[in-house]
Design a protein around this nucleic acid. Structure first.
Lengths: 200, 200
DNA sequence: CGAAAATGTTACTGGTCGGTAACAGCGCTG
DNA sequence: CAGCGCTGTTACCGACCAGTAACATTTTCG
C-alpha cells in the first residue's frame, strides 16, 4: 500500500524535471534551454538533474519518450471511445489535432526536435523515428479497418497534412493554411472511405 | 607577402558570408552555428561580418531574405517555362519540390527558422510571414488560372502537403510518408482541376 | 600615383553553457 | 536510535559565444 502522503500533490524530482524540460523545450527550443533553467523551473537543482540523467542529451531522449508515451495513451483512449471503428477513430484523431493546433502545448515536440537535433547521430533521432514508424503502422491499420482500399496512401496523406498543419502553424500563424486543415483532412478521409480511390 | 592566388572574380565578402551562414544554418541549425564559424566558412573574419551586419539576428534576417529572393527567381523561371499555364506551373512546382526533398539543401530554411526562432518577436519571423503570405497569393493565383473552382482550398491543401513532406522528411526520413508526396500532391491537383470540387 | 574605403588580424570582454566536486540536510527504513 | 539513499546548496571548471577595440593590410578609384 503506497498511499504516499509524504509530499501531497508533488511528484518526484525526476518527473518534475522531465515535465519542466518538455515545457521549456517547447517554448524556447532545445538549444535555447539551459539545464540550469530546467532545474530551476522544476523547482529542483542541477545536481539532482545530473543524478538522473547523465547528460542533457539523455534528458532530451527521455522527454521524447514521454511525449511518445502520452500519444500511446491517447491512442488507447481513441480505441475505447470508438471500439473497432476505424473510421470514427481516424476522424476523431484528426479533429483532436485540429483543435490543438493553436495550443501553445501542441503535440509537435517530435517535429521540433527533428529540426533542432541537427546531428544525424543524436540518440533522440532514433526515438523520433521509432515513434513515427509506430504511428504510421497504427494509422495504416485504422485506415484498413475503415475499409479503405489503399490504406497506406490515405495514411501518408493524413500524416503529410498533419505535419504540414503543424509546420504551417509555426510559420504562417493560425490564419494560414493550417486553418483549413480539419476540412481538408476530413474530406480526404471521406473521399477514400467512400470510393476507396485516391482523390477521386 | 601572401601571393594572391585569388580567383579573378570573387563574390564580395558580404555575399560569401550570407552564403556560408545559410549553409551552416541548414546543416547545424541557427542556434548551433556561431558567428566565428560563419566568418571562417566564408573565408572572411568576424570583424568584416560585423561591419556588414550589426548582429547575428540581422544576418539571420538577411539569410531569410535571400532564401525568399531565390524562390522569387524560381517562380519567374516557372512562368517562363509554362507561360500563362497555371496547371503546368503548379505541377512543375510540385515535381520540383519532390525532386529536392532529399537534398541536403532542400528549401526548408523558412520552416526550420520558424521552429528555431522561438522568440515570437524575432525580426526574422515577420520575414517568414511575409514570404509565406506572398507564396500563398501566388499559388492561389495559379490555381485560379488552372481553372480550379475553390482555388484557395487547393492552394492550402498543397501548402500543407508540401510543408508536411519537408517535416516528414526530417523526422521519418526519405522512406517515410514524404516518399509519396509527389503522387499525393499531383492527385490533388488533377482532382481539383478535373472536377473543380474537393477530393471528390 | 595616392588617399580613402574596405578588408583582415589579433586580442580581448562579459556572459552563458554543460558538467562536476564537496558538503550539508532530509526522509525513509531497520 | 543509527544508517543510508536521495535531495539540495555552493562553488567551480573549461569551453564556447556574441560582440568590440586597435591596428595592419589590401583594394578601389579619382
Amino acid at each position: 500500500m503506497t498511499t504516499d502522503f509524504r509530499k501531497p500533490s508533488r511528484r518526484s524530482p525526476r518527473d518534475r524535471i522531465v515535465e519542466a524540460a518538455r515545457d521549456l523545450f517547447r517554448r524556447h527550443g532545445i538549444r535555447g534551454t539551459g539545464v540550469d533553467a530546467i532545474a530551476d523551473a522544476a523547482d529542483s537543482n542541477k545536481m539532482t538533474l545530473y543524478r538522473h540523467f547523465n547528460s542533457k542529451d539523455e534528458l532530451i531522449v527521455e522527454c521524447l519518450r514521454h511525449a511518445g508515451m502520452e500519444m500511446d495513451g491517447f491512442w488507447r483512449e481513441l480505441e475505447d471511445a470508438y471500439p473497432g471503428d476505424g473510421l470514427g477513430q481516424l476522424r476523431s484523431w484528426v479533429r483532436r489535432i485540429a483543435d490543438h493546433l493553436g495550443d501553445d502545448k501542441c503535440q509537435c515536440e517530435m517535429m521540433s526536435a527533428a529540426v533542432q537535433l541537427t546531428d544525424e547521430d543524436h540518440p533522440g533521432r532514433s526515438v523520433i523515428r521509432m515513434f513515427k514508424d509506430a504511428q504510421r503502422d497504427r494509422v495504416v491499420e485504422l485506415c484498413r479497418r475503415a475499409g479503405v482500399a489503399d490504406a497506406e496512401l490515405l495514411c501518408d496523406t493524413l500524416l503529410l497534412l498533419i505535419e504540414g498543419a503543424r509546420a504551417a502553424q509555426q510559420s504562417s500563424g493560425a490564419e494560414g493554411p493550417s486553418a483549413r486543415f480539419a476540412e481538408i483532412a476530413d474530406a480526404a478521409i471521406l473521399s477514400f472511405a467512400g470510393s476507396g480511390a485516391a482523390f477521386k
